[in-house]
């Protein structure tokens, strides 16, 4: 950012019972959640689960059938200079193809008396200063995403709402975006990012809100989603080791899906497991943390019979263990 290290007044997002029906089709169904300041929240759900509809209701673009979305306790339409409170990037295609990227930003800036110098600073920040004077119709998907982000940041907002911001970004762009969002959250801003891929935002977000078919299916921190820590131990004599671990108050169970001799110990403390094994005289052949495969967990959550995607027909893939190697 152009400003020296700052902390911004904290502003939360609160979604209360938001509901939208499109002619009888319930796209969003009594959805409630809260987004905390200073954190990055991933808003996740499969295609057609109602993410965009929810964000658009929050931003006053779609009129809710019921419920409301509040930003810092106010409806979007009640915000006095909305761009200075909320920056939003909804789709990477919301540009007039004949207008230059810079002029696109100047048009938005003009409504809030934001100077051209800020426009140029944002173009610099998102890394497209060279293309800024060319017609936006010729921009690549990644450049459009960056222009959208520049637009969202124009008013130095306290809240950032981004709909699938990494669509079309290359790996380098995704890494850059992560760094930027982390930095902005560090300044105390509230950041809500939607995605249909949990794996994509897993490393970026602090909190998650997962929806399926317009319903909330899970909300919490990313740690909570990972669940309790577990460790994989492969030992020459797993039964004996399990017994020894039990003696030390550590639950361990056979984990044959990881191959012969494998145990799942319900602790993250590998030092203790190693020590117990040594005392018990059991040779350890492998010792590593077991991490929850969030992508698979996500599939399970959103494909559960109650949440199976109404937009698709046919059976969901059978779910398997959610644990995989780190």
């Amino acid at each position: 950012m152009t400003t020296p290290p700052t902390t911004v007044p904290s502003t939360d997002i609160e979604v209360r019972g938001l509901t939208k029906s499109f002619g009888g089709f319930l796209a969003v169904d009594d959805l409630s959640f809260r987004v905390e300041p200073g954190r990055i929240t991933g808003f996740l759900g499969p295609n057609g689960s109602g993410k965009t509809t929810t964000l658009r209701m929050l931003l006053g673009l779609i009129r809710p059938t019921a419920g409301q979305g509040l930003i810092g306790g106010r409806r979007y339409a009640e915000l006095p200079a909305p761009l200075t409170t909320v920056g939003a990037a909804l789709e990477a295609t919301n540009f007039h193809p004949g207008r230059s990227g810079r002029d696109h930003l100047r048009v938005l800036a003009g409504t809030h008396g934001i100077p051209d110098s800020r426009v140029d600073a944002m173009l610099e920040l998102v890394g497209i200063p060279a293309a800024a004077r060319k017609r936006a119709g010729g921009y690549s998907m990644g450049m459009r995403q960056r222009l959208g982000l520049a637009a969202a940041l124009l008013g130095d907002p306290r809240v950032l709402i981004l709909d699938e911001p990494s669509n079309g970004l290359d790996p380098e762009g995704i890494r850059w975006l992560r760094g930027l969002l982390r930095h902005l959250a560090g300044e105390g801003r509230t950041i809500l990012v939607s995605s249909h891929l949990l794996g994509e935002v897993e490393q970026t977000v602090d909190d998650v809100v997962i929806i399926a078919n317009g319903h909330l299916v899970r909300q919490g921190t990313i740690e909570q989603l990972h669940g309790d820590p577990a460790t994989l131990v492969r030992a020459a004599d797993p039964a004996h080791l399990a017994e020894a671990l039990h003696g030390q108050g550590i639950t361990a169970e056979p984990a044959t899906e990881h191959g012969p001799g494998a145990l799942r110990a319900l602790t993250g403390d590998m030092v203790r497991i190693g020590d117990v094994a040594l005392v018990a005289g059991v040779a350890v052949h492998e010792l590593r943390p077991l991490r929850t495969d969030l992508e698979r967990l996500f599939l399970e959550l959103t494909e559960a019979p109650a949440h199976r995607n109404r937009n698709l027909t046919g059976d969901a893939t059978p779910s398997t263990s959610t644990e995989e190697q780190a």
Partner: peptide
């Protein structure tokens, strides 16, 4: 969208 976001 952008127009109404800037001026709800």
């Amino acid at each position: 969208s952008g127009t109404f976001l800037a001026t709800p």
